[in-house]
């Protein structure tokens, strides 16, 4: 698993690659937090196109990062989830706080 980041026009793009479950949660949480802390941005886009698997442990990780970004007044958005992850995000109402964008 891996987390990549880039900043374009004050938007922080974070992409999570691999699988997000209890085993990888701690590592991915740390990587995301480091990038949220060390960059300047006005909004955050989580690119999930490279995330092959996620269960409800991942929901906790995403909501936790949303709160960190909110502390910096930066809204967070989700882009390109696979259909399976899209289903989990819809079911758990995550899009209410982190809207999906194209």
């Amino acid at each position: 698993m891996q987390v990549n980041s880039k900043v374009i026009n004050q938007t922080l793009y974070l992409s999570i690659l691999g699988e997000l479950d209890e085993h990888s949660a701690q590592y991915i949480r740390g990587e995301l937090d480091q990038k949220l802390l060390n960059n300047f941005y006005r909004q955050v886009v989580l690119d999930l196109s490279g995330l092959k698997f996620m269960d409800s442990t991942g929901i906790g990780v995403l909501i936790g990062r949303y709160k960190k970004a909110r502390e910096k007044n930066a809204p967070m958005f989700i882009s390109n989830p696979t259909s399976h992850i899209d289903k989990i995000l819809k079911m758990t109402a995550v899009y209410d706080i982190m809207p999906k964008i194209n």
């Binding site: 949480r29 269960d55 409800s56 442990t57 929901i59 906790g60 990780v61 909501i63 936790g64 289903k87 989990i88 079911m91 758990t92």
Partner: peptide, 14 residues
């Protein structure tokens, strides 16, 4: 406190 969503059974049921 561990950022748990409490959605495990809901996901299983769905």
């Amino acid at each position: 406190d561990e950022e748990r969503a409490g959605m495990g059974f809901t996901v299983m049921e769905s």
